[in-house]
Each structure stands twice: as structure tokens, then as C-alpha cells.
């Protein structure tokens, strides 16, 4: 190496043509793909977790001597997994050839649509999960010689089930935020930013 580092740098860049700035028109293209892929991966992980629970729950419940509750919960989870799988398959219908902005917007619309439908499902599945949980507790109470369920307990359970039914919308949204909150926020921010960029 004959030249000093400073000379190499200075003279190297003197006639350098590769210092032309790359295009920034397609700024969000890969970003959008990464974001959607991330959400899809989360959905898949969630699906796998549900399937694992479907297998594990009856086994755990068998040892806890509440096998029927375990089977009921597993069936309910299986239905949830089947429903979720069908929803995820809907992503394929989105136009991948669209611009990244349009693609993200259609993904966002699809997501909102799925959430709106899932809220309706949760309205019935959440009270059922709650009743299975209560039934598990009641079985344990019975085994310890607790006897019949007192009327007041029955009324409380009924009221709580109604409350779960009534608030299922909020519980579901809270549940979704807990699991996907960060990535959904990122999606919202990215779309908002792209809109601002487009307005220039």
C-alpha cells in the first residue's frame, strides 16, 4: 500500500461516479413485505400454539380428573384453530401485485374485517370458555365434598357469564392488542407515514 488512507479516500472519490443517490421512490416496498410477513408469522405461531393446547389440555385435564372439561375446551380450541386457519388463508386473496401502499391498505382492511368477524365468534366462545372454567372449579369443589352448588353461586356464575357475553367485544380486543398490539401499531404508523409521504 503506497498511498496514505487519506489519499486513497480523497482521490478515490474524486471522479467517483457511484456516488449517485439510489432512487427513493420505492421507499416502502420491502418494508411493507416485511411487516405483512411478520404479522402472518405471528398468526401462524398463534395457530400452532392453539393446536398444541388442543393436544395438551385433555391430557392435563385427565390428570386433574376433569377430562370432560378438557375435551370440551379442546374441541372449542380446535374450532377456533379451524376458524383462524380459514381467516389466514384469506390473505392469499390480497393483490400482491399492487403497490406497497395499496397492498398495506388492503391488508389493513382485511385485518379489520377479520377482527370484526372474530368479535362475533368470541361473543359465543368466550362465555363457553368461562363456563368450562367454572365447571372445572365446580368439579374440584364436588370432589372435596362440597355438595351441590349453592343457589347464590349459580346466580353469580349466570351473571358473570352474561357479563362475559356482554363484554366479549372488549375482552377480545384487549386479547388481540396484548398479542399483536405492537405489530398492529407499526402497521397503522407505516400506513399513516406513507399517506403523509404521498401527500408530500
Amino acid at each position: 500500500m503506497n498511498d496514505s488512507i487519506e489519499t486513497i479516500w480523497k482521490e478515490g472519490f474524486l471522479h467517483e461516479k457511484s456516488l449517485v443517490a439510489p432512487s427513493v421512490n420505492d421507499l416502502y416496498n420491502r418494508k411493507s413485505i416485511h411487516l405483512v410477513d411478520r404479522i402472518k408469522r405471528r398468526f401462524q405461531v398463534n395457530l400452532v400454539m392453539i393446536v398444541v393446547m388442543v393436544v395438551l389440555l385433555p391430557v392435563i385435564c385427565y390428570f386433574m380428573q376433569v377430562i370432560w372439561q378438557g375435551v370440551a375446551a379442546a374441541i372449542l380450541l380446535l374450532l377456533t384453530a379451524w376458524y383462524n386457519k380459514r381467516q389466514i388463508d384469506g390473505i392469499k386473496s390480497l393483490d400482491q401485485g399492487a403497490t406497497s401502499f395499496e397492498y398495506l391498505r388492503s391488508f389493513d382492511r382485511w385485518l379489520r374485517d377479520v377482527l370484526a368477524r372474530s368479535v362475533k365468534v368470541a361473543r359465543f366462545s368466550y362465555p363457553l370458555y368461562f363456563l368450562i372454567a367454572v365447571s372445572t372449579g365446580w368439579s374440584a369443589w364436588n370432589r372435596q365434598g362440597g355438595g351441590d352448588m349453592p343457589l347464590i353461586a349459580g346466580i353469580i356464575v349466570a351473571a358473570a357469564t352474561l357479563a362475559v357475553f356482554y363484554f366479549s367485544d372488549k375482552i377480545y380486543r384487549w386479547d388481540v392488542r396484548l398479542m399483536y398490539g405492537r405489530v398492529f401499531n407499526k402497521l397503522e404508523r407505516t400506513i399513516a407515514e406513507m399517506e403523509t409521504l404521498k401527500q408530500g
Binding site: 486513497i8 478515490g12 461516479k17 457511484s18
Partner: peptide, 11 residues
Amino acid sequence: GAFADEQLNQL
């Protein structure tokens, strides 16, 4: 060759 200058690439 990201750059035309070989020494610059090496640097």
C-alpha cells in the same frame, strides 16, 4: 466493485 477505484474498494 462498488467503486471504480480498486484501492478505495480495498479501503
